[in-house]
């Protein structure tokens, strides 16, 4: 279980003046801190800004960027925009699932290292197909390059 630092949440809330309309940036900052939205943090925020749990949960689950589940150390986003799709991003995605031993719907790999997200266009269509690892773009991916990338990350973890 992730421990939530309520002082930190307080400082985020203070920055936005406990303003209900700023709930999305507030959650973005919390997520930047924990990589996901811990339930305890959200409930705390709801109480502080006067939203009900139902409403806050409704907002948090509407936007794909928010995750209520813990994420892996490496968040790999595979772009599936039209340009990437036309240049066979599905194959890259498949290779990624295969090498991480994950399947669609999994939040995190068994070793806790990886989270796979399929995103709808990273805006780097010229380099299609692309993926990002913790925000760093890897251009012109192929299944082989994907496998190599994961091996490298695993290797880096071991040493």
């Amino acid at each position: 279980m992730t421990k939530v630092d309520f002082k930190l949440i307080d400082s985020i809330l203070e920055k936005y003046g406990c303003d209900k309309s700023k709930i999305i940036p507030i959650m973005q900052e919390i997520q930047a801190e924990y990589k996901f939205l811990p339930e305890a943090a959200l409930m705390y925020v709801a109480d502080k800004i006067g939203e009900t749990y139902a409403e806050l949960y409704g907002v948090a689950t509407f936007y794909k960027d928010f995750s209520l589940n813990e994420k892996g150390k490496y968040v790999i986003k595979v772009c599936n925009g039209t340009a990437c799709h036309v240049r066979k991003s599905d194959d890259v995605q498949e290779a990624l699932y295969e090498i991480t031993g994950m399947k669609p719907g999994d939040y995190i790999s068994a070793d806790g290292l990886f989270t796979i997200e399929r995103v709808a266009c990273l805006g780097a269509c010229g380099l299609a197909p692309v993926c990002t690892v913790n925000g760093v773009v890897h251009p012109q991916m192929t299944p082989d390059k994907m496998r190599a990338l994961i091996m490298d990350l695993r290797e880096a973890e071991r040493s």
Binding site: E51, T52, Y53, A54, E55, L56, Y57, G58, T61, F62
Partner: peptide, 20 residues
């Protein structure tokens, strides 16, 4: 103004929920 329920998720996964 009780707001005990709201729609959660989106698209065809939408559901009326009390949250969490």
């Amino acid at each position: 103004n009780v707001r005990a329920i709201d729609i959660a998720n989106r698209g065809s996964s939408s559901i009326v929920s009390c949250g969490f």
